[in-house]
Design a protein around this nucleic acid. Sequence first.
RNA 1: GGACCCGUAGCUCAGUUGGUUAGAGCGUUUCCUUGACAUGGAAAAGGUCACAAGUUCGAGUCUUGUCGGGUCCACCA
Length: 885
Amino acid sequence: MSELSKQFKFQDVEDKWLEYWQKNNVFHGAANPQKKSFSVVIPPPNVTGILHMGHALNNTLQDILVRYKRMQGFETCWMAGTDHAGIATQNVVERELAKEKKTRHDIGREELLKRLWAWKDQYGDTIINQLKKIGASCDWPRTRFTMDQEYSQAVQEVFIRLHQKGLIYRGEYIINWCPRCQTALSDEEAEHQEHQGNLYHIRYPLQKPLNGREWIVVATTRPETMLGDTAVAVNPTDERYKDLIGQKLILPLMNREIPIIADDFVDPQFGTGMVKVTPAHDPNDFQMGRRHGLSFVNVMHPDGRMNDLAGEFSGMDRFEARENIIERLRESQQLEKVEAHVHSVGHCYRCHTVVEPYLSKQWFVRMKPLAEPALRVVQEGKIKFYPERWTKVYTNWMENIRDWCISRQIWWGHRIPAWYCAEGDAGREKCQEPIISKDRPVKCLQCGCTTFRQDDDVLDTWFSSWLWPFATFGWPEKTKDLEYFYPTKSLFTASEIIFFWVARMIMAGLEFMDDVPFSEVYIHGTVRDSKGRKMSKSLGNAIDPLEIINEYGADALRFSLIINSGQDLFISKEKFEIGRNFANKIWNASRLILLNVPEGNQIIDLKKDVDVRQLDLPSRWIISRFFTTLKNVEQAIEGYRFSEAETLIQDFFWGNFCDWYLEISKNKFTDSSVQKVALGILQQSVGMIHPFMPFVTEELWQHVGGKDQRCLASSSWPKSETSLINAVVEQDMQALMDVVAVGRNIKMNWNIKLQQEIECQFATEDERHVKLLEENMNMLKSLLRINTFSIANYFTKNQDSAVGVVGRIKFLIPLGNLIDVQKEKQRILQDIQEQKKHLTGLSARLENQDFVKKAPPDIVEKDQVRLKTLTIKIKELEEVVQNLG
RNA sequence: GGACCCGUAGCUCAGUUGGUUAGAGCGUUUCCUUGACAUGGAAAAGGUCACAAGUUCGAGUCUUGUCGGGUCCACCA
């Protein structure tokens, strides 16, 4: 058998296996009626994306499940791809353009698109290649892009269908406007953050003084919008202002006459109880404007500068205008006061500029009809969230859903399939409604004109992402793959994406496929640094997964990320040692076995190829432990408890197999049954660990997996053999391990070297224990270095021995003149005291009639047994003290 | 304003439906290079389970409140 290096050199194997898996098409899945299907779609990263820890976590989780299912024999497809990420990508290319001192308007739409596609061709695969490095077993040849030809067809189809159903409309409303990106955003794309601002109290003079009042005071956080005020509102029930309703005010700085109106919306408690109404710059004011037939005065350019309707402030940036307006009001004594005021301000999720509520004509999706079925499938349990609490977040959003603004004033994206005829553009009343069509219309049915202009806007990126689970399989065509792989099984994502993507995919799936897009949604945490801050490039606290792969290996990255994953993950570089060390441990355990097992082995079936009844206790024990672990690992994976699965694996492989079984077996490798068991457990373990650490296991499989085997990635998951789980064996072995541990403790206590041989005397009243000790004395000898031993029923009086007690097994280790009798006595007396404390508690509980009567009988019985054992133990310890003299 | 999560060893976290003397990894201390591995082995120290009240025979676990930390939602002029 080939020699392994002393350490696992991940550098030597990772690329080799990536290439092998790829070449042999191991990750490809295709419609196969003979097998059950298992499919997952990747959350498509932005084409502009660079792999960060969040991606690494997200994709490792998916990969564990996908590899596990593939090994279990499912026909597996993990759909890969990227998202065109409209605003983000356009921003990147526009920044490049800016270096040439040009804007997109200088070069025009077509030229910009050319550059965008060129950028995509050059850099678009970056993240895909990075994902491959972590071992993600996606069906890579299928890799889709949300602006692929076929995918775009699906997007247009969806737009047209929804429009036909009356679920898409166009209209003038207040939307979130990013003055920097110069586009509309959806409500989800405006991130609200608490902001320490001011509440400005401003005097608006009455046209005619009334009841001694010359002015009224309004409070606002955005004084610049006052230039577009067309009314001031009070609550109709507010006694203070009843007489003012219907009066006129003179808008300061603009000298425009505006009315005082009454509206229920106004909260008399807030501010002064009088609200300035700016219908073109605030969603509430917009509603009031509609209710009261006010005019809509837009005072801002799309780039956030004040426009011609802003009078003397025209041309100023909105925040500059704010300063100037306040200054002017102060000068004219119309600024009554300024209060500090914390309120939340929306920011563009792409460039973090403060968004402006802005009046403009946009396209919207009517959401209520789509939300209702999507809500139902979750309530009925057809889709489950893990952890379950996210159900509530989802439900809450769905129940309060608002219409979705889907048009964007950028150029990178799916152009809206709406066409305007020349007559309509010229103002012809009947031709105002656009024609919805994939292709340019031939003739306007209203006026007969043949000149058309396509809508300039493109669709929100998420308007294509929400089709991902079926558009990637060829929808609207009824492809075999679509039929076979839809619906998918699981979706893995972070909580921020629930509204953007998860919720909308569910709506789209139900609307267009008449079925849920997936049945289980796993929400994982956010990766943070060791101080709990979100990892970000700008903070400079990000740990680059690729750097970790270079330094510690991909397996280490994967294993360490998952085992640390709780709600959020707090990551520092040292944490990746966990995975590196474990990979190395697996490697070296294999090395030990390979050095001792002859070449040419087959895969060992621990049930058929080994007769368990012939095996010694440690072998039966490790087999039982393996199948216990396997069962628990399976349950953990199925329950999306991946970190638990890894803990189970590590406990078994390191804590049981390496620390005990291999230690015991080291000197017994001449025994062919030991060879078989050690190799068999190793083979099965390597399979069990593969979904978590694909590289080291695949490499080892070539050495331990026998001849002519398929690669591990396409092999079978270990077969569960619960009949080989044996609780009695596990208990017996545990007792012997405890003896060893207590014995080592004694040695350590008395400064006896671990490898120094000792004598031992055992005492136990239980015949079974006597047998157990005698049969396994060889094992104890090798682990405790027992020289001679005897088994007695009673200890004779001794002056020179340390004593250990494990359950009902008691043992003496003669120490000769090494022992300090007083010290040993002291130690035991202390132990007795400790035990007595527990005894007191236990007997108090058992004397409590309420406990005896009300607690379940098995619990009471357990405690009674415990009491008995403890009593004997104390008695024996006291005996020992007496014997010490 | 509403909803949610977290608080267990110096650090990061486990702790199933309430039921032994609350666990692990890292870190710390002591010992050990004997051919699988020092990316290793052995042993040890370290906890009033944030606090308070309640339910219960029994609470880290359930309820309520308090304090501390975090997240999300909302038409917060």
